[in-house]
Design a protein around this nucleic acid. Structure first.
Lengths: 235, 235
DNA sequence: GTTTTTGTTTGCGCCAGCGCAAAGAAACAA
DNA sequence: TTGTTTCTTTGCGCTGGCGCAAACAAAAAC
């Protein structure tokens, strides 16, 4: 392991959780990290595995998902590079991952032993504020999505999911539109519905010119029209 | 304010988040806390208020809930004494509460200024581990409930809600049964359904002898039968 | 090129759950 | 006591969304 690979330090520097970490700490973290590649469809970890590592996505795309007893998948979060995930074990020694992390493309991540990271946080307590910010942000997002799932209709939730993905992708909202590389099944798992129902709404929206679609591809043409659907002002 | 009221120290000592705090820290926290009483139906804080205080429930019962744009309520969590809530502002200065905290009975809580608490955590960094454990636990519970809402039928979710409340209430699972003081509307807000549907399932279960019901009262007679419903083994 | 695999669309029938409405039942107020 | 409020029950009709099935389409494999 190359402890001071400058590229690794660069990745770590752009992790939001570590925004106020000292350069020295970034170096230390880089020294603890191991690069791990996972191909499209593979897993960084499975639900129930011992949470011995936390990860920072370096390249590619991945998702955090849960699988229910009867095999249905629920998508909790889509991960993009520089995001930290699987940090649970860094807080609670002996914990198991409550979800699995699956690559949506060929991806690489930095793996850091949970115990090592926990030790570092103990020595550098200000790092815990970054972690707590990450967690409170995540809690708020989960609460919001829980509320949506409990009170809104499928149509609104799918529209909202598209807008959320668009915002997260960081692409400009331009006349050209925002292209999202997700299948109907992906959207269904994000919104708690079925691929059939997602397909029906996408078809309807495409006929209205709000979006265009392709195989594992959705392009938002008129995002503001989707906002109206999400807020239930239209219809 | 009586800074060293021994009763207040006792309450704080039993807060799970502070399980490994030094006695000195407990005294400090007690010194920062203000007792606040809220009557049945009143609010400790509203969704959108500036998160200037965090709270520890001292007596009574309360709930954390969100209200959607069209006025529907979603119940996120039921609070029992010695639980900490509204801690968001202690992490993110300037944050607003993402939910409201409403008393379900006449209740009292200790209020601690978020800024004061944040200062204390900065000085006593090991306290942040307790906070992080609280947050990871809450995240896991929210993820689990999100999965349930996305994949399970109403009947299962209501059964699960009853079992969860029973476990949380701390009452023994005895032949006498466990009595829960919740209305049909409460259950509906916890499970993302309507009071009508809740009422129908409760009636059905009462006819089968699994529970008995009253006005704002549900008594579990055969919890294991509910477990079977929750796991969808019955039916 | 051809075949296979994987993803998408849409018709059709069905049903879980919603929500109104109206009647009971328990608590509370005067 | 009598009325008022609040919570609960249940019949009824309706519909949003599910899920099978079958056809189509686009990659990928050979």
């Amino acid at each position: 392991m190359d402890n001071h690979d400058p590229e690794i330090v660069e990745i770590i520097r752009h992790v939001a959780v570590l925004h106020d970490a000292a350069d020295e700490d970034l170096q230390t973290i880089a020294g603890m990290s191991i690069r791990r590649a996972v191909e499209d469809g593979g897993y960084f970890f499975l639900q129930g595995d011992k949470a011995e590592y936390l990860y920072i996505l370096a390249s590619g795309r991945a998702k955090l998902c849960m699988i229910s007893a009867d095999g249905q998948q629920v998508n909790l979060r889509t991960l993009i590079p520089n995001q930290l995930f699987g940090a649970l074990g860094a807080i609670q020694p002996g914990a198991v991952y409550p979800a699995c992390a699956q690559a949506l493309q060929d991806s690489t991540a930095l793996a850091i032993a949970s115990a090592d990271f926990r030790n570092l946080v103990t020595k550098r307590p200000h790092l815990s504020f970054g972690l707590m910010e990450l967690m409170t942000g995540y809690i708020q997002e989960m609460q919001e999505r829980y509320r949506e799932l409990a009170t809104e209709r499928v149509e609104q939730r799918v529209a909202r999911a598209l807008l959320r993905l668009a915002a997260q992708s960081g692409q400009k909202i331009e006349r050209g539109g925002i292209t999202l590389p997700f299948s109907r099944q992906d959207l269904a798992e994000m919104t708690g519905t079925t691929l059939y129902t997602v397909s029906r709404y996408l078809s309807r929206w495409e006929k209205k010119g709000m979006i265009t679609t392709g195989r594992e591809l959705i392009t938002l043409i008129e995002p503001h029209a989707l906002v109206r659907v999400a807020d239930d002002l239209a219809k």
